[in-house]
Design a binder for these strands. Structure first.
Lengths: 229, 229
DNA sequence: GCAAAAGTGTTCACACTACACCCATGC
DNA sequence: GCATGGGTGTAGTGTGAACACTTTTGC
């Protein structure tokens, strides 16, 4: 009966990571200069091949770690790409994952070795294969998901100000938000803990710092109160 | 440089279809009795292996057609499953797709040959491998997507009544809806064309039949008016 | 004292909710 | 004539949108 399996073709399987960060009030994408043929020298997502003993999630995390040094990062599968002609060398499926990281934490040294560079998502160069489409779909997924889950905070430092959150959501949604209404909405969230410290890096007056409290968030969620922005 | 590819392992790739229909005011799932080892005789999603020259979408449509005879069906990829141990015979990745079909149109003869049977989604048996999880994720995706895109109509016949649409959304969301408020919402949609015919199969008075007009829907969409329910 | 960003308050309109009643028809 | 499902109307309410002013502080 195993014939039923072994008469079927096998395929290479790759993982590609859409690595997103938030800096200078912009969403940024981490790209590398591809180091091997085909398309050597072109910009590309960080990717890697699936190994024999790995799950897809494990492989994606391995790929992310190899470029950024980061573990324990928010990461989610988006979509699997598999048209026969997408990789000209050998037929390869690619499972795309997006990762949300804090730009201040990643390993700049390793990234430099890969020729990695941050690009504003408003200014993404032509990428190899179908990588541009992968980025597009990942950004759409982020837009959707960020409205109902507090994943945006994965892109901010531990402590952040309300204007910072607003700039982040403005970057994700590509639209300006009224700062008074936004502030009201955010302050109504019981899982945001206001600190007594101000951050003066962006203004003379200074803005209060906040922390996301996952404990309270989980408790509220259990009570059926959901995140919504 | 092709070494970089060929030193990496290859994998079997399968497609599994979550085939959903709407009948007797319930969401239904089409399952087959698995005809080969392992787990022969157990209930299973309809699946198949990816062929050498096919895209994932093409393969999924081939699998769907082989069971139901249907083409031109709404179908979307949901998620790719790839833990090493998910298929005990040979490591196999599976790309899941869900399909929304009209239960009156599918080929009952072919389906019968596969030992296929419709199950209420409230009463799904234990399935092989990780198929129960696939169904769960597909239903969550349907719930999300049906709120912002008019994909629900894919499950209804060409002509349908407003009470029918309501029953459908009640089945998708697993909650009752106020029929007066629902009716108002639906009637505000310019892409629903009211016919002068009544359907009396469910009541003595009869309910007016409606049709979904894709032309008007596309035009409205272009104007930035989106589906929302 | 002024520019620049942060913080707070009010009004208004619309959309969603929760309801109750009449209508048509087969039996 | 009555039970059953289909259709419509209305009042209240709460959320989101639009908008203006004061505060703090570095220069």
């Amino acid at each position: 009966m195993q014939d039923l399996y072994f008469k079927h073709p096998k395929f290479h399987v790759a993982l590609d990571c859409i690595i997103l960060g938030f800096d200078e009030n912009e969403l940024k994408l981490l790209l590398i200069k591809r180091g091997f043929e085909p398309e050597i020298g072109k910009w590309s997502l960080m990717g890697g091949f699936l190994g024999d003993q790995e799950s897809l999630d494990q492989a994606a995390r391995r790929v992310l770690k190899s470029l950024t040094g980061l573990t324990n990062v928010f990461m989610e599968q988006t979509y699997t790409y598999g048209t026969p002609e997408r990789d000209p060398v050998s037929r390869t499926l690619s499972v795309a994952y997006y990762a949300l990281i804090r730009t201040d934490l990643y390993d700049q040294q390793v990234a430099a070795n890969y020729g990695a560079k941050w690009f504003s998502i408003n200014d993404i160069p032509a990428l190899i294969f179908d990588h541009n489409q992968m980025v597009k779909q990942a950004l759409e997924m982020l837009q959707l998901k960020s409205k109902t889950k507090p994943i945006g905070f994965e892109l901010l430092p531990e402590r952040f100000t309300i204007p910072q959150i607003r700039k982040l959501y403005e970057a994700i949604d590509r639209q300006e938000l009224d700062h008074r209404n936004f502030s009201k909405k955010v302050k109504a969230m019981p899982w945001l803990k206001k600190l007594d410290i101000k951050d003066k890096s962006n203004s003379k007056k200074g803005a209060y710092l906040y922390e996301f409290d996952p404990i309270i968030y989980k408790r509220q969620q259990a009570d059926g109160i959901n995140f919504s922005i």
